[in-house]
Design a protein around this nucleic acid. Structure first.
Length: 701
DNA sequence: GTAGGGTTAG
């Protein structure tokens, strides 16, 4: 039983024995070895009388996240005399995430009559925050004042963290302001509190004050500050922090590097994030995940998937967070082949699939056009294990595929099963109603929001405006916005935003209402002067009524502001690969055949009654030229490619990054009839299933 | 002999 090295000679004294085992315990790196040492200490009876070794074993077990075993040690050790062992046990619970056990243990400690001290409170407070237990935290706070530990800097820092963790940021600030002496950790705690509360400006303001008082940032402060700057999305400040980190030693470690990478990612500085990533040779999971997130969040989903392939070849294993990122990248691309591949990867590698990931996978299948698999996954989860997000995913899946009635059915089922709908549920169900033209049902859902105590947000109003607008009820839609304005006098968050006006503008485009369109555009250009989509929509309205002068003015305006129409990109899957087609794709040996196919396709659909819809063309050019330009839309090229390559009998699937234009929409309908092909297009808002000359959206999109 | 602040995903 005794291993070499654990053996000690018979004539060593008690102190030597203790320090001998202490050294062994300190260097212990595996749970198995720890258990062995523990059992020796127990059988020899050494641990029972050595408070010091008992504490050491307790801490070690909690390092391995086994506070239950630590508790056995505590119970078997002589702990009546002092609070030391109690504090150690409390620490074990608090630091290994067993916060409710920690609080129970604290109560036991008080009942036993052990007096808490300056070491006790930080651990107890930490567990309150982890438990979101502000009542208990406040109780502790008064106990701290009563016992006279209210001005211990460690206790005060823990109070700040506790209040901040319970989202009582003003109480945290009160503690901070009352402190007579503040160290760097307290400053950092308070700055972190604001950062976590998504108040980056206040966080940076406090940082400035901290520096004025003579403190400089250490690596922990830097990580927090990087995160705050990421929230702000301020590229200039980002560079300043990066420079600071480069100038200071000890800032090259992964936590700082990862936080800088993520900061640049949130500022949209993909290239700078790439430089950091490439320079970092020793990457951990967070490094990889941050870079993957950077690509995904900045609209570079293909790059994210390429990087994921590299990650699989590296020595770092993808985890459930990686999976979540990749699943979202795939959802963005809309590739069914990839969806299956990624899901298989998750299954084969036995990646821990919590409900969040499960829901994301369901959502991915729905967004890749495979509603059946999404539904099957939903049905496989026992009812008791579903959450609101699971239901939301399903409702939104049916909604985007144009099955509004089915979405309503699921919505009602969810309520009958006593799930409480949230703001996402209502966004999903309202937009489902909108996509299917279910105006009355939509209005009913909108009024139900109060019943379920869900606050109406601008996005919900936007859904209503969209629904009414698409249904041709432009005035009623406009009334909704006016109503919002009235309400916003008392509820400032209800100020009509760009989403609301944008929805009405779109309706004006569909119904050719230039007068109301102008009202929308004026508001939009004021609210979002950099958003090109609104310029394009408004100029389309003017183009429809052949008001080329206004079209010209808008184009001039965009030019002065340096704005460009976003590039349309259509993706089509073939042989497991994605092919991208931009609008106005360059002519080369590969695209030549595609162009020819599209030209032939246009001739064929003209025979079936196609008349080009010239309002979709931005410029004032000769009618014939305009017709020529329409052929170059990315989705038409992708369709041409699909007709050439995808086997007859198989569905042609295309994903587009913008809304599909009305001209392409009519071409797709006719192609589905003339060529007898099923085509599924996912645009930025919804799915279009084209078959036998009709689209599942009933031209309602 | 015991303590405190941090990064990724949604």
């Amino acid at each position: 039983m005794f291993r070499r090295g654990l053996n000690i000679s018979k004539n060593t004294n008690g102190f030597e024995i203790e320090s001998h085992y202490d050294r062994i315990l300190q260097s212990c790196t595996s749970l198995a070895f720890l258990s062995q040492v523990h059992s020796i200490l127990t059988t020899t009876g050494i641990i029972k009388h050595s408070v010091h070794l008992g504490a050491r074993v307790i801490i070690k077990y909690s390092d391995f996240l086994h506070p239950q075993r630590a508790r056995f040690v505590f119970d078997a050790t002589d702990h009546e005399s002092s609070s030391f062992l109690w504090n150690t046990m409390l620490r074990a619970y608090a630091n290994s995430g067993f916060s409710s056990e920690a609080l129970d243990f604290y109560s036991l400690m008080r009942k036993t009559g052990i007096l808490p001290n300056n070491y006790t409170f930080p651990f107890a407070l930490k567990s309150c925050a982890a438990n979101l237990f502000p009542t208990y935290g406040k109780l502790l706070h008064s106990e701290i004042i009563r016992t006279g530990f209210g001005s211990d800097v460690y206790v005060e820092a823990a109070l700040i963290d506790m209040y901040a963790g319970c989202e009582f940021i003003e109480d945290a600030r009160k503690v901070f302001d009352k402190m007579s002496k503040r160290d760097l950790v307290c400053w950092t705690s308070m700055i972190t509190a604001y950062e976590q509360a998504e108040r980056p400006e206040t966080a940076l303001f406090l940082l400035n004050q901290m520096q004025q008082e003579g403190f400089s940032l250490d690596w922990v402060t830097t990580v927090t500050v990087a995160s705050a700057i990421g929230q702000l999305g301020d590229g200039m400040k980002a560079q300043a922090v990066h420079g600071y980190a480069i100038r200071h030693a000890g800032f090259q470690d992964l936590p700082v590097v990862n936080s800088l990478l993520s900061m640049y990612s949130k500022c949209g500085e993909v290239e700078k994030a790439e430089i950091i990533f490439d320079q970092t040779k020793q990457r951990n999971t967070i490094t990889w995940n941050s870079m993957l997130t950077c690509y995904t969040q900045n609209g570079l989903a293909s790059e994210a998937l390429d990087l994921f392939e590299q990650m699989k070849k590296s020595d770092i294993n993808p985890n459930h967070v990686t999976s979540l990122i990749i699943v979202s990248a795939c959802s963005y691309l809309g590739s069914q082949h990839l969806a299956t591949k990624i899901h298989n990867f998750i299954k084969i590698n036995k990646i821990e699939t919590n409900l969040t990931l499960q829901n994301a996978i369901m959502d991915m299948y729905a967004k890749c056009g495979d509603l059946e698999t999404s539904l099957r996954m939903f049905q496989e989860v026992p009812l008791s294990q579903l959450d609101v997000s699971s239901w939301n995913t399903l409702i939104s899946g049916y909604g985007t595929h144009g099955h509004g009635k089915k979405a309503l059915e699921i919505f009602n089922k969810m309520i009958n099963h006593n799930f409480h709908p949230n703001h996402v549920t209502f966004t999903s169900i309202l937009s489902a109603c909108s996509h299917s033209g279910l105006i009355e049902e939509g209005k009913k859902c909108f009024s139900q929001m109060e019943t379920f105590n869900v606050t109406k947000e601008p996005k919900h109003y936007a859904c209503m405006v969209d629904m009414l607008g698409r249904g041709g009820l432009l005035n009623e839609a406009h009334e909704i916005i006016k109503n919002m304005s009235l309400q916003s006098q008392s509820q400032s968050h209800l100020q009509p935003n760009d989403e609301v006006w944008g929805a009405l503008l779109l309706a004006c485009k569909i119904y050719g209402n230039a007068t109301l369109g102008k009202v929308c555009a004026d508001n939009l250009l004021h609210l979002k002067p950099q958003h090109t989509g609104y310029y394009v929509l408004m100029s389309n309205i003017h183009a429809t009524s052949r008001n080329w002068q206004e079209v010209g003015k808008l184009r001039e305006d965009m030019k002065t502001k340096g704005l460009k129409k976003p590039a349309g990109l259509s993706l089509i899957e073939f042989n497991g690969n994605l092919h991208g087609f931009h609008t106005g794709e360059e002519l080369n040996s590969f695209t030549k055949a595609v162009y020819e196919k599209v030209a032939k396709m246009v001739v064929d659909v003209k025979m079936a009654g196609y008349v080009p819809d010239l309002s979709c063309v931005f410029h004032d050019v000769e009618e014939e030229d305009k017709e020529g330009m329409l052929e170059y839309h990315g989705e038409k090229l992708a369709l041409g490619f699909g007709l050439m390559n995808v086997d007859v009998g198989l569905v042609i699937r295309i994903t587009k990054n913008l809304r599909v234009c009305s001209d392409c929409h009519s071409v797709f309908k006719l192609v589905s009839c003339v060529y007898k092909r099923k085509i599924i297009v996912r645009d930025v808002n919804r799915f279009h299933h084209f078959e036998e000359g009709c689209c599942s959206c009933n031209d309602y999109w």
